[in-house]
Design a protein around this nucleic acid. Structure first.
Lengths: 405, 405
DNA sequence: GTATCTTGTTCGTTTATCGAACTAAATCGC
DNA sequence: GCGATTTAGTTCGATAAACGAACAAGATAC
């Protein structure tokens, strides 16, 4: 029941049907590999003849490859098909305040080499450094011709279509053309996205736990609190690239002043800063707290670890964060009724404390039993969701549905 | 960048390309009528030959009709094309607590005959009454064979796919199979939807003011406060049919108990009940207020009228509602960053008071200048948005993009 | 050794876009 | 007044895709 956009439509050409079926076939191989041509024909209710020509096309392009013959109870043995990921590489970049990660990986998400360095805050300086490292990485791994592109994840607002960083307060960036700058320096296609949206993208494309779920919200809890909203298998970016800012909806009218200028934002209660401040017994005021916390040297990881060790003050601080997160999760459930909510960030290290707190809030506020049961699952920080998001930025266009209508 | 749903995809067949182009063409005629074949060919960058065959198909089906020849500065005069709406009728039903409206209209939204009666709260009773009225309406307007279906709008949660009302507290309904019941009685296709979602649908398909906007939120302010969320030209329904319940997100932790059981919900501050209660000087407590208000006999329309006449207490009550609505609108802006927000309901009768209050809140809380400028426009109650929504339920499938991929 | 069954390919048929040629009907220039 | 020009709409052959049936390849069952 989508309306056709009469100002920007893609009409069908002679090759549209083939493109659609080609892409469906590719996705079926991706999700069921190893798989035979005959099985693909059955799943697509398509003649085996058409499958043969489509597969041949994909084999020639190097997108698929043929694997081993396989045993069957009767009849000719099928030659199984796989998606080629090993020889299709990606450079994933995770840019943060504290450090920048550069990862060489394959399209399937397998890590090959990871580098870390202290973030430089001058955009030109940083792009220069990145270009040097990317070139070196590709050279040492003989990956030049095999690299499909660069995916880059940013803590801030991004215009993905143009590859521009609109506003990244943590870095102090405003209106920086990242894509053009990095593409010119490396000669590679560059995709830029904000962190929670990229994490959501990774969950669509690279997570086994998504398991066919096409409507979910990725709630990223880190220095900031933001979300990536996915509706109908697609990330929602909003009219001016700022959808998913649930972190800046107030949950208390007279709460602390948030870094965004508003009062009582969800982020002010649930960011890693807020959790640490609570642990240290400070008033919840991110603007002031920031320096105090850096002086104290205590990180969220410390608080989470101590909570695990039984430190009562740490446990109380984390559980409080969980309770406030529950308020945020309830908001998301009311607003979007997703099939699943994924929580990412260091705080998931104490999921045994966080989860019941979230569940209680959701159950208390939900409008229907089914909404109350909305699964809330953790994504441990060890999964490197942001780097996986950067990979997904490059992988998704390869597998995405063709735009039609 | 949509992911293909490998569990439920539509592969392309021989006729898929034609279906896509046929539907694009139909929508172009709809939005630019009267329009010539040659102009369609130019807009679609398609050969005039293909356009001829597509148009002939649509003419034979009675979807389009040929109008007058038209003057041109040079060359042969084109025969203009129009969408046939006059001979394609719809029965629109708006079911509410206070009354039920039944409207005979055409696919373009033009009203032909409107009936009203007191709502019966027994589902079987109501369906019987509706069936009698629908049959009579079609008979007296000789509309039997020309009726494309029934669209029905419900104050409550609806599973649109199955046509079941899940929960309509105002009617006291739970799990009522409306579609099957009405379809069996009338022999017509029946579409059922909840009210704010249907209003959003009407705004996509029947409003000139939507003007190509494909991402917006319809904020319906009436006895309840709900929204219809539209992303990429499609209404978002959620995993269990409860998306868009912004009305039940708390805006004050210690606010009044809402009818839903939660505390401090947006609805408790901004529903018509809340506005009237505020005008009468009652404590904001919908559960208690309801009876008091019915006894007082004052309606929202009264309050809005008195505000227009300069009654200071009425003006203050309405402005307060506006301010709280502004908090709700800000939430929507942060969460979804829509291109537009449409506010519907009686309160829009005092838009000169409501609008600045909303604007001030949005401006104060927005994260970016562009978000702060999100247009908020009123839809006066006189537009009959709910009945138009019911019409759109039948019209939308006729024009919607074919599902592909 | 033959029948059966499954995989994968080949090839003629059908149906769509594509593009060029053609017809229809108007104005413009002289 | 009449041919040139311009625009609209149709027709038709070329091409590309799905479709479907026939066929070849390679296995097991009896």
């Amino acid at each position: 029941m989508r309306k056709i956009d009469t100002r920007d439509f893609r009409r069908a050409t002679r090759s549209t049907s083939r493109q659609i079926n080609r892409q469906i076939l590719l996705n079926l191989v991706r999700e069921h590999q190893p798989i035979s041509r005959a099985d693909l024909a059955r799943r697509m209710t398509l003649g085996r003849g058409v499958v043969t020509t489509l597969v041949n096309e994909l084999l020639e392009e190097g997108v698929l490859y043929e694997g081993a013959l396989v045993e069957l109870p009767r009849g000719r043995r099928p030659k199984m098909l796989h998606v080629e990921t090993r020889d299709r590489l990606v450079v994933a970049i995770d840019l943060r305040f504290s450090r920048t990660d550069v990862l060489l990986a394959d399209l399937g998400g397998k890590q090959i080499a990871l580098e870390r360095f202290a973030t430089r805050f001058g955009p030109e300086e940083l792009l220069d450094e990145l270009a040097v490292r990317v070139r070196r990485l590709l050279r040492t791994h003989a990956a030049r011709g095999r690299c499909q592109g660069i995916g880059m994840v940013i803590p801030g607002m991004v215009d993905r279509a143009s590859g521009r960083v609109l506003n990244a307060p943590q870095l102090g960036w405003r209106d920086v053309q990242v894509r053009a700058g990095l593409a010119a320096r490396t000669g590679l296609a560059v995709h830029v996205e904000n962190a929670p949206a990229a994490c959501a993208l990774a969950h669509i494309w690279l997570s086994e736990r998504a398991n066919g779920i096409r409507d979910f919200v990725y709630l990223s809890v880190s220095d900031g609190v933001g979300t990536g909203v996915v509706v109908n298998g697609e990330v929602v970016r909003g009219h001016a690239h700022t959808a998913g800012e649930f972190g800046h909806i107030p949950i208390r009218a007279e709460g602390p002043i948030c870094l965004c200028g508003s009062q009582g934002c969800l982020e002010a209660y649930t960011s890693n800063l807020a959790t640490v401040a609570r642990y240290l017994g400070h008033e919840l005021s991110p603007a002031i707290a920031r320096e105090l916390l850096q002086q104290s040297g205590v990180t969220v990881d410390d608080v989470v670890r101590r909570a695990g060790e039984g430190d009562e003050r740490a446990r109380a601080a984390v559980a409080d964060t969980g309770r406030y997160l529950g308020i945020g999760v309830s908001m998301i459930v009311q607003a979007l009724n997703p099939a699943q909510i994924v929580v990412g960030g260091e705080i998931t290290g104490a999921w045994d404390l966080v989860e019941p707190a979230i569940r209680a809030e959701v159950a208390r506020r939900a409008l229907t039993p089914r909404a109350a049961e909305t699964p809330v699952i953790p994504e441990p920080a060890g999964h490197m969701p942001r780097l996986r998001g950067a990979i997904a930025l490059v992988a998704a266009p390869v597998y995405a549905a063709p735009q039609v209508g």
